[in-house]
Amino acid sequence: MWRAEAKAVPVKAAPGEAASVEAASVEAESGEAASVEAASVEAAPGQAAPVEAAWVAGGAIGRPVSRLWTLGLFRSELTITLRRWRTLALLGVLAAVPVLVGIAVKIETGDGSTAGQRGDGGAGPAFMAQITNNGLFLVFTALAATLPFLLPMAVGVVAGDAVAGEANSGTLRYLLVAPAGRTRLLLAKYATTVTFCLLATLVVAVSALAVGALLFPLGDLTTISGTRISLADGLVRALFIALAVTASLLGVAALGLFVSTLTNSGIAAMATTVGLLTTVQILDQIPQLHAIQPYLFSHYWLSFADLMREPVYWVELQKNLGLQAVYVAVFGSAAWARFTTKDVTA
């Protein structure tokens, strides 16, 4: 409940627009709204107070402080998202994957053999075979292992919950009476989801790096093209790979946000997003559908491994970025069209 925050404060000053209905409903529950205000001002006094002052002084226009407003909105959104137990649990699970992989590889190779070396050769996630020689490869293996399902699922949960969750718990209308406007609220929601994408990827990468450094040696590494690069170069590439993985998740994030604007049930939005994700992954595996596969958002996800080639093979990385940009543009604008015209009843 406390999440409605300072945004409820300028309601009384807010002129006309679509807010009138919502304002009425806020007043109907004024008892609750008042307590919300009290709590929120304490929660974020730093940015909220001057913004309000400027709002009052600047009148209805209030543009000079708009950037601050968005940033404040984004910051409060981010804090709220990251404080959820659900989010923390997801990040915990993501951090546990490299630990499990690292320990499993350590145990399997305790007798000196190399991981992933079986008759068929191609078992296990990518880069598995090199982990024992260089702990840095655990970063790549962990990302390759989590990118198909775990990472996008976590993003789907956060994105799906973004709008529908608010609607479900009845806090969306309080948010909307804030003079920030729906577009800006949606942007703040998407920025929060994107930040979560980056954070989730970094959690996997950092956890993998820590486990890899702890259990296996570090040092110069061999790229998959067979050339050698220094550890520093390897770490730089690991950072770029984390960014490429983050970029791969942007499409899912936009899709989740769009689904989230369609329904008032947070659970339904999350389930739909994760369901769509799984469906797309399955479609990407069926050889007969190769004609549509290049347009599926997950098709070029593994292209991040191309950053480990020497020289880097950019073709598929560029295709991936282009595809994600198209998904963000299509579903982002669809979410905007839906959210800005939606009747908010809860």
């Binding site: 190399t114 191609g122 990518a126 090199q130 998959i224 491994a305 080639r309």
Partner: peptide, 21 residues
């Protein structure tokens, strides 16, 4: 996410399969 390289350098011919190392 893997590469097979066949490298000829001087008198050496190396084949490297990164998937199985």
């Amino acid at each position: 996410a893997a590469e097979y390289s066949l490298i000829h350098n001087g008198k050496d011919v190396w084949g490297y399969d990164s998937a199985s190392n």
